[in-house]
């Protein structure tokens, strides 16, 4: 293959935030899958435990995508979409009839804070979609003063020390046998 001479511009800040959000997403997802009943009770929404477990799967998928994918943009936007679902779900727990509405309110505040971070990160990552910048061209940096042909096998006079010789079983057969004697 011929290696490309251009690549996506890096935004270390946005990518750093995206990575942190990826781990956060996985951590939250694991919590939602392992303890949906307790979380639902804490929020005063006991019937939402199935929903919370489902959201856990979504969080883990977004997190793995953010950490693994070469292009993080769809995954960070998937988090923004997920935030909207979280807000809508938590909003149902803010009514006066919920004795745990304080906890739901606190959770809502946290989700809104993370949503702001998700949107900021998504906007930064999407700032220049597809734009490439040239990298330095090192195609002339051979290291061979006398050219590539002269370099190949130039150290043919070198004798491998005994302690670094390959196992006999891998020695070149040269038409015969390489079995150790």
């Amino acid at each position: 293959m011929s290696a490309p001479l251009s690549r996506q511009p890096a935004d270390p800040t946005a990518h750093g935030i995206a990575q942190a959000l990826g781990w956060f997403s996985i951590g939250l997802g694991v919590l939602e899958i392992l303890a949906p009943r307790k979380m639902a009770r804490t929020l005063g929404m006991p019937r939402a435990r199935g929903v919370l477990a489902g959201y856990g799967v979504r969080e883990i998928a977004s997190g793995v995508g953010l950490l693994w994918a070469k292009d993080r943009r769809p995954w960070i936007w998937s988090r923004v979409g997920g935030d909207a679902l979280d807000v809508a779900t938590l909003a149902t727990g803010l009514g006066r009839r919920n004795p745990q509405r304080g906890a739901s309110g606190l959770a809502m505040a946290m989700v809104l804070g993370v949503t702001a971070l998700d949107i900021f990160c998504a906007a930064r990552l999407s700032a220049a979609p597809g734009r490439s910048v040239p990298v330095r061209d090192y195609s002339a940096r051979t290291g061979w003063p006398h050219g590539a042909a002269a370099a190949r096998g130039a150290a043919g006079d070198f004798r491998t020390p005994r302690d670094m010789r390959a196992p006999p079983g891998l020695r070149h057969l040269n038409g015969g046998s390489a079995q150790p004697t």
């Binding site: 990298v135 330095r136 061209d137 195609s139 051979t142 130039a154 150290a155």
Partner: peptide
Amino acid sequence: SAIMLGAKQVVAIDNVPERLVMAKAAG
């Protein structure tokens, strides 16, 4: 070094374009 020591082919593995270009420059 592998080229100087006479390997039949040397394969370089990375994902940084300019480093791959530098490796390719050596052969």
